[in-house]
Amino acid sequence: MSAEIKDPSRSSYYVDGDFYRTLIERFDDWQDDARIVNDHIERDMFRGLLEREARLLDQHRYESWLKMFTPECVYWAPGRPGGGDPRTEIAVIFDDRRRLEDRIFRLCTGYAWSQAPRSRTVRLVTNVEVFSTEEANRRMVRANFIINEFWDNETRLLTGWCGYNLQNTVEGWLIQAKQINLIDCDQCIRNPSIIL
């Protein structure tokens, strides 16, 4: 198979059985006190990374935001607290690289009525905790969030926490998986159309 065909922006070969299994494993029971990284420089570096991510989204700078992810990434909002199994359960969102680019493409068509006019957001990212893994170049990070979203003459809050799987690469630390855990993920949500 040629490298071009395997470009994850154009085709989806990496979302296979192993991909799901690894994802579920990594996001199961990872918030282990014994693995907390106490080094404040490292913690501050990840805090800075998440703050930058929040700013890019607030500023609709989607191209730059996408560059924060590894090519073979996943952007996942489970449909029930605890995560569930995305192989057998519908998620609120389960995007691979290409679908994440679809999501952004759609918002930029000018015909996404749910975002016309588009929402204004201000995101607060707090309670950042960094966890080490068995691999030296991989970290799991947890952060709470509040997204203040102004849309249709109303400001509302989207609240939850995110789990990130980050990979240290030649381009620095990149997000391989972002799991967004809305506190009301299993409830009816009005106009869930912004990037979380």
Partner: peptide
């Protein structure tokens, strides 16, 4: 396993990218 995994992903498409616009309308 593969059929259902694919079937979950096909089902998430329309609600995410289609239904939201109908609801706005």
């Amino acid at each position: 396993e593969g059929i259902n995994a694919l079937r979950m992903r096909t089902q998430e498409g329309f609600p995410n990218f289609g239904e939201v616009d109908d609801l706005a309308n």
